[in-house]
């Protein structure tokens, strides 16, 4: 992916700042709400760009270990889902649940990190 700076992440950050600093203070009501929603969505994109690659690599490694087969993330997640539904994973519940919890925690760290910490 040949690219100059500003990187995609820096561009998304610029758009998020534009929405937060220039748009949000000047709109109200439904538009203000949707501006906040948009800012949150871009923050998800930023976190994904920063951390998603490492998370994907770790998830892929866990899936290969768990399933004992090779493939990309989509293939292996499909295979794991079918195996769970068929009851084929019932013998490895401990490792399976550990993997699923880690994966869900990673996803939530991207989608809504505040969810992982109670309000103080």
């Amino acid at each position: 992916m040949p690219t100059d700076r500003p990187t995609a992440a820096e561009l998304v950050e610029a758009v998020r700042e534009f929405l937060a600093d220039d748009v949000a203070p000047n709109v109200e009501g439904q538009l203000a709400f949707h501006t906040r929603v948009a800012i949150n969505a871009l923050a998800i994109v930023e976190r994904t760009m920063a951390q998603g690659g490492a998370m994907d690599a770790a998830e892929l490694a866990r899936l290969r270990e768990l399933l004992g087969q090779d493939g990309d993330l989509a293939e292996l997640n499909g295979a794991l889902s079918r195996a769970i539904r068929a009851g084929e994973m019932d013998g490895k519940r401990g490792a399976l649940l550990e993997h699923l919890r880690q994966t869900a925690q990673d996803k939530i760290a991207l989608a809504n990190p505040r969810y992982l910490t109670p309000r103080g």
Binding site: E10, L11, A14, E17
Partner: peptide, 11 residues
Amino acid sequence: QRSIEYAAIGR
């Protein structure tokens, strides 16, 4: 100077 215009021109 943070500016979406400048950021876009950068590319």
